[in-house]
Simulated assay, not measured.
Amino acid sequence: MKNVRALVMLLIAAVAGLGAVALASRWMLDRSSSPTAKVAVASVDINLGQRLNPEFIKMVDWPSGSLPPGAFVDVQKLDGRVLKTSVLRGEPILDGKLTPLGTRGGLSAVIAEGHRAITVRVNDVIGVAGFALPGNYVDIIVSTQQDKGNKGNTDDSISKIVLEKILVLAVAQEVGRDETKPKVVNAVTLEVTPEQAEKLDLARSVGTLSLVLRNQVDTVVAPTIGVTKATLLGEKAAPEVAPVKPIRTHYVARRPAAPRDCIGVLSGVLSSEECF
C-alpha cells in the first residue's frame, strides 16, 4: 500500500514538472516569435548639452508592442542633435530629451525658455561642501546690513532667504549629474528668471551669499522675515521712550489800574486821601 502511494506521488510530480516545462517552452517561443524593432539607445553615459554622434549611439532590438513614445528607429535622425537631459548607457534616446532642431551644443542649449544662466562664486562652505551638483535645487541666503534708519537699531546685520528652488545648471565647467560624487568648486551656474537674476546680482554685491540644498521634489515656498542678531539670541527690543514735550509757560501782563478820582481829607493835624 505504501509503495502504491509513493508511485502515485511520483507520477503527480512528473506530470507537474512536464506541465511547467511545456508552459515555459511555450512562453519562450511566444517571446522569441514576437516582432521586434531596432531602437536607438545610448552606448555610453551622455551629459546634457552634448551633441550626439554615431559613437554615442547603438541600435538594439526592442519589442514592437512596447516601444517608448518618441523613440528613434533611424540613427541618422539623431546625428547632430543636442541633449537637454543626461542619458545613461543603455537608455533609449527619446525625442523629449532633445533640444529643438538646429540648436547648438553647450550650456545655452539646456536653459529653459524665458530663463537665464548666472554664475556665482562659492567656496566649500557656501557650495554645501560640494553637494550642490547639476540638477539639484538650492535656496539662496544673503547676509547683509539693514538700512541705518530702520528703527534706530544698533546692530543692523540680517540673514534672509531671497530666492527659493533655484536649479543648478553646472558646477565650474561641468554639467554632469553624477550625484554620488560631491565636488568642491569655486563657481556654480544657476538657472533663474530675469527678475531673479536682478535680485541675485544685487544680493551678491551688498552681502555674502550661501547656498542651501533642498529636496528635488519639494515645491513648498517658505516665506521668512529674516533673522537678526536680536531675534537669533532671543533679545527683547528696548522699549521706545516717548519724547518729553516742553512745558510752555504763559505770562499774563498786568493791566494798569484805571484812573480814579481822589480828594484830600484834613482831620485836625492829620491828612489822608480818599479815592472813589
Rank of each mutant, 00 (worst) to 15 (best):
K236M: 06
T208D: 07
Q216F: 11
L83C: 03
R26N: 03
V82K: 00
G90P: 12
D147V: 12
V75D: 13
W62S: 04
I247Y: 11
E195H: 08
P256V: 01
A42H: 08
T208H: 08
V142F: 06
V192D: 10
L78C: 00
A258Q: 12
D79I: 05
R214A: 12
V175P: 06
P100T: 02
P68L: 03
G149V: 07
E113Q: 10
S66P: 07
N53Y: 04
T231K: 09
V244Y: 11
R260S: 04
V120G: 06
A237N: 03
N136L: 07
A253W: 08
P223Q: 14
I161L: 07
G96E: 05
L7R: 13
I111T: 10
G264N: 07
E164S: 09
L213I: 11
A13F: 00
W62H: 04
L266G: 13
F276L: 12
D261K: 15
P243H: 10
D178G: 11
N136P: 00
R214H: 11
V39C: 06
G17M: 07
P182M: 09
A40Y: 06
K183N: 11
G65I: 03
P194F: 03
P92M: 01
V212P: 12
K229V: 01
T224E: 14
D147M: 00
S33E: 15
I57S: 05
A172S: 06
V212I: 13
L98H: 12
G19K: 06
I263V: 08
Y137M: 05
K151S: 09
I141L: 15
L10C: 06
R31Q: 15
E235N: 14
E273L: 12
P239D: 02
G19I: 13
A13N: 04
K58H: 05
C262L: 04
I141Q: 13
I161T: 10
G80W: 11
K151F: 13
T249D: 14
R26G: 02
A37M: 00
E174D: 15
I12P: 05
D74T: 03
E195M: 03
A112G: 13
A222I: 00
E273G: 12
L23H: 10
D147W: 01
V87Q: 06
